[in-house]
Design a binder for these strands. Structure first.
Length: 635
RNA sequence: GCUGCUGUAGCUCAGUGGUAGAGCACUUCCUUGGUAAGGAAGAGGUCAUGGGUUCGAGCCCCAUCAGCAGCUCCA
């Protein structure tokens, strides 16, 4: 039979719009942007090669398994009401309204029931019916959510049910033919989810699961989920003594321990280095300002809910800053500006505070106080394209240094209320496009995705686990220059309005460094590693030699841990290994006599003896080149 | 903020109404060992916090705080 399905590719494509039409925001990065494996993750290196002999696309299988699950839930929990149950990037979910809360135990029961049903190999039947009939059937079954779903289907569309056994669901398909074929699935987790993704609507219970045609693929996926768990920055944060959070201090405030503070400082040094190279000047602005500043900027009006409550000083309300731009603008405004000094590029690692709702704070990824790697470029319209190109180049340099791949998106003018006239939008968008062309940066169009105050280029980076997250953004702003009435004296002697470019490369240090922990799995490259070298004497009498090497390494600004406390070397090797120190130098009689070191690289049990001077050069090179690997790069 | 779950030693976790436990880490002593945990002893907890029920609460109930899986929202 025509296994490519009577439904064809057009029906297949309909799967995704189905959800969007119904008012779902398609989840992009989910909670904490990168913490959730289900939606936002792709599996690049874990994914098996594409299958050719699959009877149906994976999406179709998953959608059908979601139905299988729903039918099992229906048998185990009579009276359950159904919500939506689509396939998603790495699996599927189904939403249920149930009196009692589900538990993990129920998940196993449901799985068992699913296998029971699938064991009978029921066929999946499609039935086309009228809107009236569907409404009657669903109402009779008390499926109030499904009745609502019915009303969301556009007038000109066919109404269909898909079912197996005695169970059927309002659904546009497509589905596999029957449950007789071999497939593998697992139910993964439970969560609450608002009906139709709307927080004013009732909350349903969502079950997530995944399904594959091949056992090995399911296993690989589960393995990958394990790897994600192992690399969780919160777990590694404890294991490697990187950071902590404290109930005493409140939710969403990160305490950087020496190890992670070291990583951060290296990131910051690199960041400043690259900015200085590109003609940025540093600025520092206060954390607290009079409220009137944020009234002028519009933050109070548009962003007030995210801001901390005012504090009163000398009978004046003051606010903690949620963004750095107003401060930079005050500096710009401090005196008259001439076209001769533009572009001005001002950078600040500016710490801001934003009120985040209690349920969303998450490790270092979503916090209430964080440091943005912020900069603002004040320039003329003519300079815009060059300035943007400069930022694109900077993003490329930074992301490649950390080993991230990325994709850039051009976000254009949104449909509804925006400021600035067509002409300037057109010119700015064109400038972004030209700039990208200048640096050979392909742009994916994000139609209408711009901010209300201007178009932008957003970047998504892909980490070592194939997960995507957004950090860098380059935004043209016509709004703030207007609000603050910024100007510069142009060649013609008249006052002109500068364009402001807001840009962040890393986003926030908290989120970025948290991401680095997971990207590297705690195995930081040499330049970032909290301790770069561990010195281990074989016997106490070799301590002096180790101390001497420690001194030499420190003079070269190599971060070194001389482990000459009493104890056995095996234990120290294990400790250094556990701490993910890139290099262990082990010194005993032979090494002392020859002024060599036995070098053990992270991730290998082999060792290589070399003159200490040679090692010093090696580690210096790896650090200074910000190499990602522990091997010297071949010239 | 919402739904569900969790909070016991620095870490990982046992302990379901009747005298607070284990492993690792830590301290001390012994051990001088050539590449992933040497041995022994010791110290360490108002069981998140505040109320309540009970003769009696780590355990049951309520509230608060914090965390976890998501939803919604975001750098």
């Amino acid at each position: 039979m025509a296994r490519s399905a009577g439904d064809g590719p057009a029906r297949l494509l309909a799967l995704v719009p189905f959800r969007e039409r119904h008012g779902f925001a398609r989840p992009r990065w989910g909670r904490g942007d990168r913490s959730s494996p289900r939606e936002q993750v792709s599996m690049s290196e874990f994914q098996a090669s594409p299958q050719v002999e699959e009877p149906f696309p994976l999406e179709t299988l998953r959608h059908s398994v979601a139905h299988l699950m729903a039918s099992a839930v229906g048998r185990l929990f009579p009276g359950v009401q159904y919500g939506f149950g689509p396939c998603i990037e790495h699996g599927f979910y189904y939403d249920f309204a149930l009196e009692e809360p589900l538990t993990d135990k129920d998940l196993r029961r449901i799985e068992k029931e699913m296998r029971k049903i699938a064991g009978r190999k029921p066929e999946i039947a499609r039935e086309v019916t009228t809107r009236e009939d569907a409404r009657e059937r669903l109402s009779a079954q008390g499926q109030t959510f499904k009745v609502e779903a019915l009303d969301l289907i556009p007038e000109d569309e066919e109404i269909s049910f898909y079912g197996h056994g005695e169970w059927a669901d309002l659904c546009e398909g497509p589905h596999i033919d029957d449950f007789g074929q071999t497939f593998h699935f697992k139910l993964l987790s439970l969560a609450g989810a608002y009906w139709r993704g709307d927080e004013t609507r009732p909350m349903m219970q969502r079950i997530y699961g995944t399904a594959f045609w091949k056992r090995a693929e399911l296993d690989a996926h589960l393995e990958w989920l394990e790897e994600v768990k192992k690399r969780d920055h919160r777990k590694l944060g404890t294991e490697l003594d990187l950071f902590s959070l404290h109930a005493e201090a409140g939710a969403g405030f990160v305490f950087w321990h020496p190890n992670l503070a070291t990583v951060r400082r290296e990131v910051e040094n690199f960041w400043w280095e690259e900015h200085t190279r590109r003609g940025y000047d540093p600025v520092y602005t206060p954390h607290i300002s009079r409220e009137t500043l944020f009234a002028v900027s519009g933050h109070l009006e548009n962003y007030g809910e995210m801001m901390y409550a005012p504090m009163e000083l000398d009978a004046q309300p003051y606010r903690v800053k949620p963004m750095n731009c107003p401060g930079h603008i005050l500096i710009y405004q401090n005196r008259g500006r001439s076209y001769r000094e533009l572009p001005l590029r001002w950078a600040e690692l500016g710490t801001v505070y934003r009120y985040e709702r209690s349920g969303v704070v998450h490790g270092m990824m979503r916090v209430r106080g964080f440091t943005q790697d912020d900069a603002h470029i004040f320039c003329t319209p003519e300079q815009l394209a060059d300035e943007i190109a400069g930022v694109c180049d900077l993003v490329d340099k930074v992301m490649r240094t950390f080993g991230f791949e990325y994709t850039a998106y051009l976000a254009t003018r949104p449909e509804d209320k925006t400021i600035g006239d067509d002409d300037i939008w057109e010119r700015a968008t064109e400038a972004l496009r030209q700039a990208a062309q200048k640096v050979d940066l392909p742009l994916v169009l994000d139609e209408g995705g711009g901010a209300f105050y201007g178009p932008k280029i957003d970047y998504k980076i892909r980490d070592a686990l194939g997960r995507e997250w957004q950090n860098s953004t380059i935004q043209c702003d016509f709004n703030l220059p207007e609000r603050f009435d910024l100007s510069y004296a142009a060649k013609d002697g008249h006052a002109h309005r500068p364009i402001m470019v807001h840009r962040a490369i890393l986003g926030s240090l908290e989120r970025f460094v948290g991401g680095l922990i997971e990207h590297y799995g705690g195995k930081f490259p040499v330049w970032l590693a909290p301790k770069q070298v561990a010195l281990i004497p074989i016997r106490e009498e070799h301590s002096d030699y180790c101390r001497e090497l420690e001194g030499e390494l420190r003079r070269e600004l190599i971060r070194v841990d001389c482990m000459d406390e009493p104890g056995h070397m095996n234990k120290k090797i294990k400790q250094a290994q556990h701490a993910q120190v890139p290099f262990m130098l082990i010194a005993g009689e032979r090494e002392v006599a020859e002024r060599t070191v036995a070098v053990r690289r992270r991730g290998t049990r082999d060792q290589e003896t070399m003159p200490f001077a040679q090692f010093l050069e090696l580690v210096r090179d790896l650090r200074d080149s910000r190499a990602l690997e522990l091997e010297p790069t071949p010239a």
